[in-house]
């Protein structure tokens, strides 16, 4: 019932919004939200802040570009019903591999090791021409045609993204309650006790990273369809920081906050240049982010929930 209140208006958006708002703002926010969700999942349930999410998303995106129609004549064209599962699988495996490398580190060390992996992946894509086409990357990547309708058209792409976002949210809440999800949270809280019970600590950590790779890969695939291109810039330092910013302003402790953060970020990114002088627009973006962090240290999701709680209290009869 509570979710219907959120989902039904979202389903009606294509009727209300023009293509620009639907695609450039809503769809983009949903896609960035899914990638940021993969970060807040790790942060909330495993207690690890990962900087390698852009690389995981890139693994999914590059797979789609390499095995799909593109205009740079690199790669093998496979039908989408093979390339999509393959991209999801590779993103998941890459996530698991990163988890394997980072499984012994915590806190600041986990940040450093995942940052190193993210940046190494960025330089690798920039220098490798056989698989990643280096600096230029892939362009002219087309989303699949299903029944004559391109998934890149504004309305289908929006619904694809919305569906992926809803499924991702459901997966996160389901996974968190599963035995493996509980083991992950136990590792977060007391790794020593988990070991004392005879449960391996590595497996839950690798599983958590692999799952976040699946989420990030989903976002990565949608992002390639949306951008119709991918290059080393798509996995560079800029996107890495953007994903962190989105997760933080939404609230790292709330998976759904990722989407709130993404909407705010996309609006700022798109319209700041119209609001202030074009030489100062980054100052505006920085100031707003700073204010959010100062006045809502637990993110916008917390702010919204506090507001709602206050309203509810005010509504109650006072006698």
């Amino acid at each position: 019932m509570r979710y219907a209140l959120i989902v039904i208006p979202l389903l009606l958006l294509p009727v209300l919004l023009n293509d620009f708002w639907l695609t450039q703002v809503m769809t983009r926010a949903l896609i960035l939200g899914i990638v940021a969700l993969s970060l807040s999942f790790l942060a909330k349930y495993l207690g690890v802040v990962s900087f390698a999410q852009a690389a995981m998303a890139g693994a999914g995106g590059y797979t789609i570009a390499y095995f799909g129609p593109n205009s740079v004549n690199i790669g093998i064209e496979l039908p989408f019903w093979i390339s999509i599962p393959l991209a999801l699988f590779l993103a998941t495996a890459f996530g698991g591999l990163i988890g394997c490398v980072a499984r012994r580190s915590r806190g600041i060390y986990a940040i450093m090791i995942t940052l190193a992996i993210g940046i190494a992946f960025f330089y690798f894509t920039r220098q490798n021409y056989a698989l990643f086409n280096g600096w230029t990357g892939f362009s002219g990547v087309r989303a699949p045609l299903i029944g004559g309708i391109s998934l890149r058209a504004p309305v289908p792409l929006y619904f694809m993204s919305l569906l992926s976002a809803v499924v991702s949210m459901m997966l996160v809440s389901g996974f968190a309650r599963s035995p493996m999800g509980l083991a992950i949270q136990a590792v977060r809280d007391a790794p020593g006790r988990v070991m004392a019970l005879g449960i391996s600590v590595s497996t839950p950590i690798i599983a958590a990273f692999a799952f976040s790779g699946l989420l990030a890969g989903t976002g990565g695939i949608l992002n390639v369809w949306y951008q119709e291109r991918i290059s080393s810039f798509s996995v560079g330092f800029g996107p890495i920081i953007d994903i962190l910013i989105i997760a933080v302003i939404g609230g790292l402790r709330y998976p759904s906050g990722a989407f709130i953060g993404a909407i705010v970020f996309v609006m700022l990114d798109t319209f700041a240049v119209d609001l202030v002088d074009r030489e100062r627009f980054n100052t505006l973006i920085g100031t707003v982010l700073l204010l959010i962090v100062i006045f809502a240290p637990n993110g916008l999701q917390q702010l919204v929930m506090d507001g709602a709680a206050k309203l509810r209290r005010a509504k109650q009869p006072t006698n």
Binding site: N18, D19, Q24, Q227, R229, S231, R278
Partner: peptide, 21 residues
Amino acid sequence: SMSSDGSPDTAVAAARKLIEQ
């Protein structure tokens, strides 16, 4: 005017915004 950060992705996003919005 719209800004790009030098990456193809932002240049494309800037162009789409200019055209569609």
